[in-house]
Each structure stands twice: as structure tokens, then as C-alpha cells.
Amino acid sequence: MLLNYNSAIKILNKYKIRNVESAIVSTYDDAVKFWNGKGMITMKVISDKALHKSKNGLVSLYLSNPKQIQDAFLILKKRALKLKLGKYKIVVQRMILGGTEIIIGGNIDQQFGKMILLGLGGIYVETFKDFALRLCPISKNEAFSMIDQLKSSNIIAHDAKSRELIASLLLKVSKMFSENDFVEMDLNPIILHDETYDAVDLRLMSDKG
């Protein structure tokens, strides 16, 4: 089942994997407090049953005043109810403008065990299916070879610095996936921006009921 949001964030922090500032909110007042008059935020519904959030209208972007935040909160609640998601939570996050979206994921193959994946992320994952896959754990050279294998390698890693950034992130995720009992994992998207990155959305599935 899906690991709860706060525990998942805790694990990312333990492995020093950067993630965007976020909070679970139960009222729209909480959401407005989180916003605190600064820039833009996003709001989304998270649930075991909601893999394709954007497609189902479970994400609101560019929220920059209390009215927008309140409206978004009410609409998302209504949609969650309509989709019969059962248990769900609403999460608010600082919004990152621009940048390039990648996915880093993990899966357990029946034959080979734990595998790690790097690909062009966000909404492009399933359209272009541009990804590289390796058995865990990976070495730094293997991390570089994953980057080089992508058709989009020039888009996501255009210079030595960004290659280094992604390679070291891959090593951290490989370590995290190897040392924990997740069965499936999506960090998607991770946004590369301003010479750094932030994990924006994540799904960590554990086989423990």
C-alpha cells in the first residue's frame, strides 16, 4: 500500500533527497496559512487510487491569493468525493516555475530484484517512454550511462554540472530503494531548476498491509 505522505517525506529527508516545501491541510484556512502571502502554491489530492492526478483534475496550480486557494480546496474535495477515492489527503506545496521534469523510480523485478529507472518526467513519461533502467545498486559510472542512454539526455543534463547533479541524485535514490522495503516507487516529477532539483511528487508503495 501507499506509504503515508509524512513518512515518505521523512525518508526522503533521511537520504538527503531534496523535496519541495509542503504540508497536509485539512481546512482551507490551513492552506492559506501555508501560503502566507508568498508567491504561488499548488494543491493536490493524494490517494492510493489516484495514479493519474492531472488527468483526473486532482491538481490545482498557480494559486496566489486566499480566494483562489479556497476555491481550489472546495473543488478538489468535490472531485475526490465524485471519484470515490475513499481515504485521501489534500497537500499544498510551494510552486516551482519553469525547470525540467524528470522521473526517478524503483521497481522489483521477479527475476532480477530491485531496479532503478530514470526518465523524462511529468506528463511525458508515458507518451515518450524515454527511460533507462538498471539493477540496484548502481555505481556512479552506471548512473552516467543511464543519463547517456536517454534520447532526452541533452535536455535534462546539458552540462557537466547537471550530469553530476543527476548522477549523485540517482545514487541517493538507489541507496534509499536498496535499503528500504518498498515494492514500487515513483519520484515524479523531480524538477530540475536553478542548478538544483526538488522532488515534487512521490509514490512509495510498501508491501506491508
Binding site: I103, V125, K129, L133, E184, D186, R203
Partner: peptide, 14 residues
């Protein structure tokens, strides 16, 4: 599959 990763990382790709 419960994740994009699992749906892409099928046995042949492994």
C-alpha cells in the same frame, strides 16, 4: 502496476 515505474519496467526491459 501502481506506479509509472512499474508499468515501464516490464520483465523484458529488466
Amino acid at each position: 502496476a501502481h506506479s509509472h515505474t512499474a508499468s515501464l519496467a516490464g520483465s523484458n526491459n529488466a
